[in-house]
Design a protein around this nucleic acid. Structure first.
Length: 494
RNA sequence: GCCCCCAUCGUCUAGUGGCCUAGGACACCGCCCUUUCACGGCGAAGGCAGGGGUUCAAAUCCCCUUGGGGGUACCA
């Protein structure tokens, strides 16, 4: 294969959407696999809707996912500029060429006329297409309109004969009857190119070899192919990847929940998991593997294996995968990823001391198999960093208020208070003795301690929680639980 | 309306005419492990949209129907 050049070309009108991110990922994987070039191009010809904040957000999202681009914003490259708004002279030049060669013509129709035309067509049950009236204008008529000061757009002289064939890498041969097309606008009144025009100029000039994009662009392709032809450009290979849908099978959008990459980051998803999940949306490898490292993806990805049908975004599976990756992280990396969430919860300073760091890592070690998202940390770790905010009512009732619990807590508190060390091996004998003392199973001892120390019935092992809290705090909480028990008991007497 | 695309468990998918009594993953349910909760292990349930062809043989090829998605802009 000749040198591979692919691109991701978002329009900066919002955040990096997961659909866009998946398109970017497929392009990136394809480029990396073929030692090709991955170009990032910003399609900001819609002045009204494009913002620089959006550009920043998109770049940030790309970086978060680890999708580095070889050419594009902040990076440059020999095919620039990489913002369409900075390529206007190029578009103008080719627009002029089209007109000069008789492939395009000025159209003076106003939007009102156009709307009336479409309305009329609908009424007559015809296709709401441009009827080509300005195509038939004589030179004199055009001159007259220009003199009247009427503005114009440039329309492409579509070839209505035969059909346009698209050999799609994913869908195979797709044929479009050219009579379905109309003379579409290539240059707007304000001089800006339309999408269908700019995309062709850019892809051709940037020598893009494979256009990998969403299926929503498939209907545009015949128009673009005609422009390639009119300008004498080589048509690239196309691959149209399926859409991503919400649970209700409609196109994935905000109303389905989080859709932007930044949002997923804030919700505690880690990039490896997101990348893995996105790869699985519309692509599969074989009948056994679902967890793929990035390098495996680069190695195994192929357009041939991209499926044709739209995929429903399954948040539960993403969460599961995120949990898989969280569990797989070594403690140091997990710490780095999780620290912002501790900071946000007020559990840590931005730059923790060695001692703080040790504690956070101990907490993370206990939590690692228990959380699926980093943003569960404030909730899951709260009792490690402050008093118990609220005792679970059911836990108090079913565990603390049980007959004999006060005695057990009294015993354990006393024993723990006398302990010289406070690590697992120091604690074990205490609980072993308690079992003998009260002639019961371990659970009978541990559950009251757990509720006393965490306020809930579910937590990591006491052998992990207790050492992190330290002797004084642990004993304090056991005593406090005793108080709660006696208070409740008294309350019941009256 | 017209054009284009798509159709395997609830979801993502494996399957490219016989290896399919359709495989895996998530979710769900049950059991085991266990100081609780997770993790982990084992197991159950669950699908070829419908109808016609082609063929000795169809989830796989063809046609129709139905359903879903996309497009039909001076948005990208």
């Amino acid at each position: 294969m000749d040198s591979v050049r692919v691109r991701f070309a978002p329009s900066p009108t919002g955040h990096l959407h997961v659909g866009g991110a998946r398109t970017a990922l497929f392009n990136w994987l394809f480029a990396r696999q073929h030692q090709g070039t991955f170009v990032l191009r910003i399609e900001d010809t819609d002045l009204a809707r494009s913002t620089t904040e959006s550009v920043d957000g998109i770049l940030e999202g790309m970086r978060f996912l680890g999708l580095d681009w070889d050419e594009g914003p902040e990076k440059g490259g020999s095919y620039g500029p990489y913002f369409q708004s900075q390529r206007l002279t190029l578009y103008r030049r080719y627009a002029d060429q089209l007109r000069r060669d008789g492939w395009a013509y000025e159209c003076f129709c106003t939007s009102e006329e156009l709307e009336a035309m479409r309305e009329e067509a609908r009424k007559n049950k015809e296709d709401p297409k441009y009827d080509g009236r300005c195509r038939r204008l004589t030179a004199a008529e055009r001159e007259e309109r220009r003199d009247q000061g009427r503005t114009s757009v440039l329309r492409f002289k579509t070839n209505y004969d035969g059909s346009t064939i698209l050999d799609d890498a994913i869908r195979g041969r797709v044929s479009f009857d050219n009579r379905q097309l109309d003379d579409f606008v290539v240059q707007k009144t304000n001089g800006m190119p339309t999408y269908n025009f700019a995309v062709v100029i850019d892809d051709a000039l940037m020598e893009i070899s494979h256009v990998i994009r969403g299926e929503d662009h498939i209907s545009n392709t015949p128009k673009q192919i005609q422009i390639y032809g009119a300008l004498g450009f080589t048509v690239p290979d196309f691959a149209h990847i399926p859409m991503i849908l919400g649970p209700d099978k409609s196109r994935l959008s905000k109303r389905h929940g989080a859709t932007s990459v930044t949002q997923f980051r804030e919700e505690g998803y880690i990039p490896e998991a997101l990348v893995n999940y996105l790869a699985l949306l519309g692509w599969g490898y074989d009948d056994s593997q679902t967890v793929f490292s990035v390098s495996e993806l680069i190695d195994k990805f192929s357009l041939e294996r991209v499926s044709k049908n739209p995929a429903v975004f399954d948040l539960q599976k993403l969460e599961w995968l995120n949990g898989v990756y969280i569990r797989d992280l070594d403690l140091e990396t997990l710490y780095e990823r999780a620290l912002p969430f501790f900071v946000k919860a007020g559990f840590a300073e931005r730059r923790p001391s060695q001692e703080e760091k040790k504690k956070i890592q101990a907490v993370l070690a206990s939590l690692q198999s228990r959380i699926r998202r980093l943003d569960e940390i404030p909730q899951a770790a709260s009792y490690f960093f402050g008093d118990i905010a609220e005792y679970d009512a059911k836990a108090v009732r079913k565990v603390l208020l049980k007959e004999g619990t006060a005695e057990i807590l009294e015993y354990v508190a006393g024993e723990l208070a006398a302990l010289p060390g406070f690590e697992e091996e120091d604690l074990k004998p205490v609980f072993a003795q308690a079992m003998e003392e009260f002639d019961c199973k371990l659970g009978k001892i541990m559950q009251p301690v757990r509720v006393a120390v965490t306020g809930t019935t579910s937590s990591p092992s006491m052998y992990e929680v207790l050492p992190v809290l330290g002797r004084d705090e642990a004993v304090r909480r056991l005593r406090k639980a005793q108080q709660i028990i006696s208070q409740r008991w008294e309350a019941e007497q009256t």
